[in-house]
């Protein structure tokens, strides 16, 4: 007999179990990001959070977004973040709490953000999820280049500006001496 949609002897769907597991992983690793002291481990926990999110995207029927999530957020952004941390920090960085000098301001900001999220979540009428529709790559491309062409172009201009800015910042001064370089 085939394994059905639900767990044997219960009415729980496999998808739901997977979702709960992935969501727990996502929340757990996100919590680790902000509670751990070792900043590299925080970065690695962030990668775990991104990976769980990619799993949830697959579960929602969009492997394209999931693959992009892994490719961009884990493969590029997180790696660059880790790179920057490793380049600037040493392993014997201060072990005491260096992040808690602005604890009051942070607490205030957290309360405000929590209130905003709570209000927006309760104020939104959530549409009930229909059947999971598998997203077609061609369809995404059609939408991107017809309905959403303007945002797409604006984002590309923004990215180009960021690249030019990065090059300008990293550029060596032409009249700088060879010996003066760090």
């Amino acid at each position: 007999m085939p394994i059905g949609d639900t767990v044997p002897l219960t009415a729980i769907r496999w998808d739901d179990i997977l979702f709960v597991v992935l969501a727990a992983m996502l929340l757990g690793s996100a919590l680790l990001v902000v509670t751990m002291r070792d900043i590299i481990r925080c970065g690695l926990a962030m990668i775990a959070a991104f990976a769980s999110l990619a799993g949830i995207y697959v579960l929602l029927g969009n492997p394209l977004i999931a693959a992009t999530q892994v490719l961009v957020y884990i493969g590029a952004i997180s790696v660059l973040v880790l790179f920057a941390i490793m380049l600037t920090q040493t392993k014997n960085a201060p072990a005491r709490l260096v992040f808690q000098t602005q604890a009051w301001a942070a607490a205030l900001a957290a309360v405000v953000i929590a209130a905003v999220i709570a209000i927006s979540v309760t104020a939104t009428t959530w549409p009930s999820a229909g059947a999971v529709a598998w997203t077609d790559t061609t369809r995404v491309a059609e939408l991107l280049f017809s309905d959403y062409l303007l945002p797409f172009e604006v984002v590309s201009v923004l990215l180009t500006a960021a690249v030019v800015g990065g090059v300008l910042l990293a550029r060596r001064d032409p009249d700088e001496n060879e010996e003066d370089r760090p």
């Binding site: 590299i40 492997p63 693959a67 892994v70 884990i74 493969g75 590029a76 880790l82 392993k91 077609d136």
Partner: peptide, 28 residues
Amino acid sequence: DLNIGLLYFFAMGGLSVLGLLMAGWASF
């Protein structure tokens, strides 16, 4: 036979750098 096979390939292949980065950092 994924319909995003190539994208999956590059996404997963890009993860190997993560291991190298972790190794480099954790070795002290």
